[in-house]
Amino acid sequence: MSEFSFLDPFQVVTIPLGDWVESTLNFLVHNFRDVFRAIRWPIDQVLNGVEYTLQSIPPSIGIILSSLLGWQLAGKRMALLCFVTLTLLGLIGVWSESMTTLALVLTSVFFCALLGIPLGILCARSDNLERILRPVLDAMQTLPAFVYLVPVVMLFGIGNVPGILVTIVFALPPLVRLTNLGIRQVPEDKIEAARAFGCTPRQMLTRVQLPLATPTIMAGLNQTLMLSLSMVVIASMISVGGLGQMVLRGIGRLDMGLATVGGTGLVLLAIFLDRLTQAMGARTGADPSLRWYHTGPVGFVLRLFGAKQPVGRSKTA
C-alpha cells in the first residue's frame, strides 16, 4: 500500500461502499427471507388475477369491450383508435404477449396508485416529508435499473413479481410528485372557504382537495403507466414475460423481425393506454354537469329506454 499523500489522498482513504452493500444484502437474504416472501404474495395474487382475466377473454370480445370503453370515456374517435390499435396487435400475432404485458403494467400501476397517492397526500401535508422524499424520488427515477435489478433478484428471485417490483420503483415517482403538486395547487380561497364552513381536515381532503386535484393526479397516473410500460422491457432481463421478452430475445439472437414485432406491439399498446388514460384525465376537467352515464354507449342504451336528457345540453359527446 502506498504512502498517504495530500495530493492524492484517495489512494489510502476510501469508503468501501460496495462491500457494505454486499454484506448488507447478504445479511438481508439470510435473515429476512420470510419478509420478502410475504411481499411477493399480494403482488402474485393481483398479477395472477389480472393476467388470468385478460388471457381468458377472446381477442374479438376484448377488442369490442375496449372500443366500447373508449367510446364511453372519450367518444367515437377514441373507440376507433382502440379498435385499430388492438386489431393491429392481433394481426401482428402478439395478442397473448400483449395481454401479459398489459397485466404486468396494470398490476404495477395498481400498486403504484396504492402507494403513490397516499404518499403524495402525506407529502402535500408535510413540508418535512416532502423535503426528505424528494431526493429519494429523484434517485428512484435516475438510478439505472441495472443497479437494483441484481439486488432485487437476490432478494426476490426472478420472474414476474420481482419484475413488477422494479417497475414500481421506476414508475412510482411521477404519481407521488403530481399528487403532491395537485393538492398543493388547490386555490387558497377554496381551502379558506372550506375551513370557514367548518371542514375537518378529512372532509377538506375528500370533499375539496382530492376532487380539485384529480386532473393533476390523473396526469401522474398516465405518466406512471407510460413509465411502467417502458420498464417491463428492461425487466424482461429478469425473466419477465410478454412483449419485452420478445424484444430481448430478438436482440439476443439478432432476430430483427422478432425484435421489431415486439417493439411495434409495445408502441401500439402504449398509444392505446396513453390515449385512454388521457381521455380519463380530460373527463375530470370537463363539464361536470355532463354525467358519465349521459354519453357514450351507456347513454345510448339509456336513451333507447327513454331516459331523460340532462337540461341545457347542446350536443352529444
Binding site: 380561497d189 377554496k190 379558506e192 372557504a193 370533499r207 375539496v208 376532487p211 380539485l212 361536470p288
Partner: peptide
Amino acid sequence: FQSFALMPH
C-alpha cells in the same frame, strides 16, 4: 368571499 370561492366540481 371576494373571490366567490365556489367549488367548481
